[in-house]
């Protein structure tokens, strides 16, 4: 390679790095600004020219959030609903995924097609009748009402079925020959092998539930059932709409736990997307 070509390559690489770095600042910058501003007093957030690091560090915004407002409860509601929804999806989707992948029984094809078709249906199409249903069951403004419609979903079945198909039949057959019952085979032999798929499904389901907005907005009618996004959205358009510090602290409470989990488990995220996205 001639010196000239090498020189040109080096310049090209430097330009590439520069562009990517600018991109990174634009993407990550708002989160850094959010976190730093939540630690500033109200006046400083609005100061011109802006400060980056707080001149006066303060936890007042968080103190307000956790004492004047009911954010500990909203946090609990979000976590409780997300855990319940995740456990439900893990159990029900792996059960039916196993049946679809490994068992032969009448009606199986129809069931799978119905689930696949559901992947196409937007939440907007079902939420009105879902609300009518839940309110006829007397479950509006209850945890059951927040959880039940999300306890199963089409995506999880699709993911688990794809994964379970890769488990060798011989293994299941051998357990059957040993006289193990069907559910014993499933819980003792099959499920332990599904750990990677379960991790992916668990993370994606938890995240979707944590960030879910429309349904809890519609179902939770009093503050004690608000989830974090609902509380944050309603405060941000309500009487606190100009409380920058308070709302940014609220955004921190919604976003930071998720970011920490993401940074710890990013491998599972990326794999989940690559395996479900490309099939």
């Amino acid at each position: 390679m001639s010196a000239q070509v090498r020189q040109r390559d080096r310049v090209a690489k430097a330009v590439l790095y520069a562009i990517l770095t600018v991109g990174l600042v634009v993407v990550v910058g708002p989160f850094v600004w959010m976190a730093l501003s939540s630690l500033k007093p109200e006046g400083e957030i609005r100061s011109v020219p802006p400060t980056w690091l707080p001149e006066h560090w303060t936890l007042d915004n968080f103190r307000d959030l956790f004492s004047r407002l009911d954010f500990p409860l909203f946090f609990f509601n979000s976590a409780f609903v997300a855990v319940a929804v995740t456990l439900g999806n893990l159990l029900f989707c792996s059960l039916v995924g196993y049946a679809l992948a490994k068992l032969r029984y009448p009606g199986k094809k129809v069931l799978f097609l119905a689930v696949l078709g559901m992947l196409m249906v937007p939440g907007m199409v079902t939420f009105v009748p879902q609300f009518v249903l839940v309110s006829n069951m007397g479950l509006t403004n209850s945890y059951a009402g927040l959880i039940l419609p999300f306890l199963v979903g089409p995506f999880g079945v699709f993911l688990m079925r794809q994964f379970l198909q890769s488990i060798p039949d011989d293994l299941i057959e051998a357990a059957r020959v040993d006289g193990a019952g069907e559910f014993r085979i499933f819980f003792r032999v099959v499920l332990p092998l599904c750990r990677p798929a379960l991790a992916t499904l668990g993370i994606l389901t938890f995240l979707a539930s944590w960030n879910n907005f429309l349904w809890p907005l519609v179902v939770a009618s009093t503050e004690d059932k608000y989830t974090l996004p609902v509380a944050l959205a309603l405060y941000s358009i309500g009487q606190n709409r100009t409380d920058f510090g308070l709302l940014l602290a609220g955004a921190v409470v919604v976003v930071v736990p998720v970011l920490i989990v993401f940074l710890l488990l990013q491998r599972h995220f990326m794999r989940g997307i690559a395996t479900t996205g490309l099939k």
Binding site: F31, L232, S236, L248, G250, V258, L259, Q266, M270
Partner: peptide
């Protein structure tokens, strides 16, 4: 990838 995992509501507030 960071913004993808965050709540749209929180991001919209920011």
């Amino acid at each position: 990838y960071l913004p993808v995992v965050t709540s749209i509501v929180a991001v919209a507030v920011v």
